[in-house]
């Protein structure tokens, strides 16, 4: 099963490599990983997407908790949460398909943020599935490049992951 693990950790050099190293050394898989400082600059927040059965996920969370730099973590799969990923897509445009691509982006609530004679850059956020669906709806040949942030996520309601 897919799990999103949110980790609050000391914003120290090397903290990221401790997490990445743990996953490679123990053979766990990482589907995506995003990290950035929080409003408290001494802390970073990492969102890590992984897959595994219950035992593996239990080991992953225990091993992560054991890292000295990890302050707190939460497995969001256990609770109601919101998930958002950011994607930028650059597509080739021609006189014929410009309108259609624009319409498609609108349907998916994407924004065209850069335009040239023969290309669009589209910005889109949403669940990973929505981004997948948009990419699929584009003609492969038109895609110049895509970049995705990997999911970030938060639990719903008044509680949160903080000190």
């Amino acid at each position: 099963m897919r799990h999103i693990i949110s980790i609050l950790m000391e914003n120290e050099a090397g903290a990221l490599s401790r997490v990445a190293g743990l996953f490679s050394a123990r053979g766990y898989n990482i589907e995506s990983l995003t990290v950035a400082p929080t409003e408290d600059t001494s802390l970073s927040r990492m969102t890590l997407v992984t897959r595994g059965n219950e035992e593996i996920i239990e080991q992953i969370t225990k091993q992560l908790n054991k890292l000295i730099d990890v302050v707190k973590l939460i497995d969001l799969a256990d609770i109601s949460h919101v998930e958002r990923e950011l994607m930028l897509v650059k597509v080739k445009t021609t006189l014929n398909n410009r309108e259609e691509i624009k319409r498609l982006a609108d349907i998916f609530r994407g924004k065209i943020i850069d335009v040239t004679n023969n290309s669009y850059m589209i910005e889109m956020t949403g669940s990973s599935e929505k981004l997948d669906a948009f990419v699929e709806s584009l003609n492969d040949e038109n895609i110049i490049e895509t970049v995705r942030s990997g999911p970030t996520s938060m639990s719903r309601g008044e509680h949160g992951l903080h000190l």
Partner: peptide, 11 residues
């Protein structure tokens, strides 16, 4: 003392 040692190989 180490939770990660518990149920690591044997449940």
């Amino acid at each position: 003392i180490d939770p990660a040692s518990i149920s690591k190989t044997v449940k």
